[in-house]
Design a protein around this nucleic acid. Sequence first.
DNA 1: TTGAAAGCGATACCAC
DNA 2: GTGGTATCGCTTTCAA
Lengths: 363, 363
Amino acid sequence: MNRKATALDVAKLAGVSRSAVSLVLNGRGNGNVALESQQRIREAAAALNYSPNKIALSLRNQQSRIIGIVSDEVVTSPFDGNIIAGADAVARSHGFVTVVMDTEHDESRDEGAVETLLDRQVDGLMYVTVGLRPLNVPPNMARVPSILANCFDDRPDAGLPAVIPDEVRGGREAAEHVMSLGHRDIAFLAGDSLTPAAPRRIEGYREAFSGAGMPVNEDRVIQVGWDIDAGFHGAMKLLDGVEPAARPTAILCANDRLAIGVVLACYRLGLNVPQDVSVMGYDDEFRVAKTMVPALSTMALPLREMGAAAMTALLTEVEAAPNGKHDDDGTAAAGAPAVTGADTMVPCRLVVRDSTGPVPAGR
Amino acid sequence: MNRKATALDVAKLAGVSRSAVSLVLNGRGNGNVALESQQRIREAAAALNYSPNKIALSLRNQQSRIIGIVSDEVVTSPFDGNIIAGADAVARSHGFVTVVMDTEHDESRDEGAVETLLDRQVDGLMYVTVGLRPLNVPPNMARVPSILANCFDDRPDAGLPAVIPDEVRGGREAAEHVMSLGHRDIAFLAGDSLTPAAPRRIEGYREAFSGAGMPVNEDRVIQVGWDIDAGFHGAMKLLDGVEPAARPTAILCANDRLAIGVVLACYRLGLNVPQDVSVMGYDDEFRVAKTMVPALSTMALPLREMGAAAMTALLTEVEAAPNGKHDDDGTAAAGAPAVTGADTMVPCRLVVRDSTGPVPAGR
DNA sequence: TTGAAAGCGATACCAC
DNA sequence: GTGGTATCGCTTTCAA
């Protein structure tokens, strides 16, 4: 396969000038180029399988139609990849392409990744994390329109806009779900407080209790970690050697892997799910929640939606910015209202499957 | 933040010409530019925080230093992301950047994705799949140096080079591991035959038996699917209501999620792992195998290595190709030896944890 | 040792 | 209605 055809090749074949080719192929032919020439140009372009060289276009137009995505470990880890999928789908539909760089949790690589992307003249930047967390935003992100997905700006105000899941509401609705099944003694197995996800979900859990006019039994809230073994041991603490009447009837988990551990522990103790204990996950992890035995009721993280929402917002800004230039120099006029709280919260989605059921009789 | 500094800005500040800047910053200064000027140029570049515009460079050099990666669902799915991570690390170390496009298993998007990447003037292309499988290679991939990772060319010969895991050997070594623990009655729970991974792993399992001079009990090989519930039901078939002496003492699973299902079934039946039954996974799935209760013995897929090997091979070809041109037009000279079997096999890695143990006494 | 000029591919302005 | 030409930022060749 030889070199690609250029506009000049098309012009020569059609017997016109490069300018005419450009005009016609960009829809500005009518009124500028003879209809007959237009026809010839289009035929020539088709014959040569011509498509404009994006690199030259980028240089000329001073915009690359590339959106850079920096992530802490989305590529490497099995989680939250759908944020990027959602973002990419939106970008593609606008004729943009995304370039993803993974820092593998090495914060010292943040600046470099952004710099590399900026060198490539990206028109916009998105920072995506695995798991909700505050982000120490690389300062050079401010040089082009930027947005955060699944993370939020650490600094007190004037930060970058962010798209995050509504974890508080998710925690509340999870608790409300089992409450609606009659449960009153509900435990919450959370991860650590290293990420705000666990505290926020717990906050929602508390909201549900106060909404129902019930006190929270603090012994029922346990922060154990995020993995299967943590769920297993947490559940053991709650259930092993405890007389039936003193057991929680429902265990809410901060993710689906914890829920796997809880179910494992229940089976080991000869308890049935959901007949003896209802178990709920969180995340709706692909190929896990749905195929567990029993299939997990869970709170689905709106990953695709978050990615799509973030990219939509970003592209709006990118396409508004004249010629890809970015005026924002960070020095807001004194006295101007601090535009905080610009964070977009996307609601989680309750998914009811087989691991939650009515509270056991007599409880 | 204003526009980036260009080479002209540097030249002006240093009081020299653009050419001098170019020479010096590309290491060809000595013998061409006065040492004193070199110094000034370097200082000016640093002061202006200058770095060359990659777009202009690409246009000028006719190569973008971008490698396009097309994947069927690596971005979306939680699996095999480390192939891309491994590939990306190698690319980065060579000063290349990767652009990933996910077709989300829509084969009709293959051509388009490759075309988009080609339009961006990528210097090379890699196709990565989730799970080993034959690939209907998009014909336009032939236009630049290309390679396959975790998939292989469907066509009989003259295909693209591929880097794949040595599944046969993995299956064999898994079986040999439990055999070394004294097990003889070993079941194999495999996924479906839609991908070659399961058949190959089964083939390895057979090899281990013939290597040990033992016959394979065909009832012990069950193809059930790839998910937790499949493992659960498969194990139930093998164990539920079966007298202890007639039970397999070890169950090999074609992935870690199947193994989770098997352990779930064991617990449900009051069986202990590994005391009553040894269970092995496959893949060493991140945050799953290691944190299971008990922690899973498994066969780790060499994902990072595969990605790195594939990218290394690809870049060798890219950097050899003069000026990014690609001569291969697919029409091999008649009579030339068909270069098949160019597939690189990367060995899997046995990981022994707590789910496999000595065969129960008396079996 | 340095600077001027050509060219990579495409677009837009401006004479004709 | 059409085609020449400057321009984007950079490298490289060639003359001075």
